[in-house]
Design a protein around this nucleic acid. Structure first.
Lengths: 122, 122
DNA sequence: GTCTTATTGCGAACAATTTGCAATAATGCT
DNA sequence: AGCATTATTGCAAATTGTTCGCAATAAGAC
């Protein structure tokens, strides 16, 4: 990570280290605000700036879970399924569903699943 | 549509007719604001209220394309692929990819694809 | 046509995210 | 190590997208 930043003339700062540390520790998709509350020592604006940077560098991925935008570090290609009731999220491994779709290149995809987990299914 | 509304004690009003007409004519995912600009005779708040209602009734679907939330009328189950450069959107038919995922019920999914169309791929 | 009440338009309120700018701190150089 | 350069931060203000309260309006039933 330090290398990657420095190659682009960027600096490895405390906020950047803390945001990455948080995402790696939690190993779950988090909103910018959640990350901010977890750190409580870095300004919210900086959390947003850091997340944008990380996404641009491909260090972090961003997706929408219902209403909110969540960010996460991808250890391996996978998708998430979220309980619409309690928000609990699990990973669903992805087996290279897509190779090419005619007429488009450089494809990115988000496969977002929501449902009710056993606890919430009444 | 009139039937469906009346069964629930709801009325078929001008805003509702216009929002649905717009979505049906455009046959593409649109943001609330786009719909609002296309109509220009209905208040933005009413467009939002109408879209929420339609989603609740299952007449309209909602998904996130990158930063924005878009709504569309589903003529048949399908997904969308959007060019990240120019925003052009096409439909990708869906062949019931998911039946059940262990531990979750009542599953809903969004398969969001973005890429570069031929015009934008340089 | 009249009555009832669901619905609208308007403006204000919110929440999430972004931006401007002076102060701060990471890196490169000596 | 100390200093200079400039990327980055924190703070506050601004923006954007969406929602809400409420009096005025208009669908639908009789």
């Amino acid at each position: 990570m330090r290398k990657l930043l420095q190659k682009a003339g960027l600096r490895l700062t405390l906020p950047r280290r803390l945001v990455m540390k948080t995402l790696e520790e939690m190993r779950a998709p988090m909103t910018a605000q959640e990350i901010y509350h977890h750190i409580s020592q870095v300004d919210l604006a900086s959390v947003y700036r850091t997340l944008h940077l990380f996404c641009r560098l491909g260090l972090v991925y961003k997706e929408s879970h219902g209403e909110e935008t969540r960010f996460y570090v991808a250890y391996s290609p996978h998708h998430h399924i979220t309980c619409r009731e309690c928000g609990q999220t699990e990973c669903v491994p992805c087996n290279h569903i897509l190779k090419t779709i005619k007429g488009f290149s450089d494809i990115e995809h988000q496969f977002i699943l929501t449902g009710l987990c056993q606890k919430c299914h009444h």
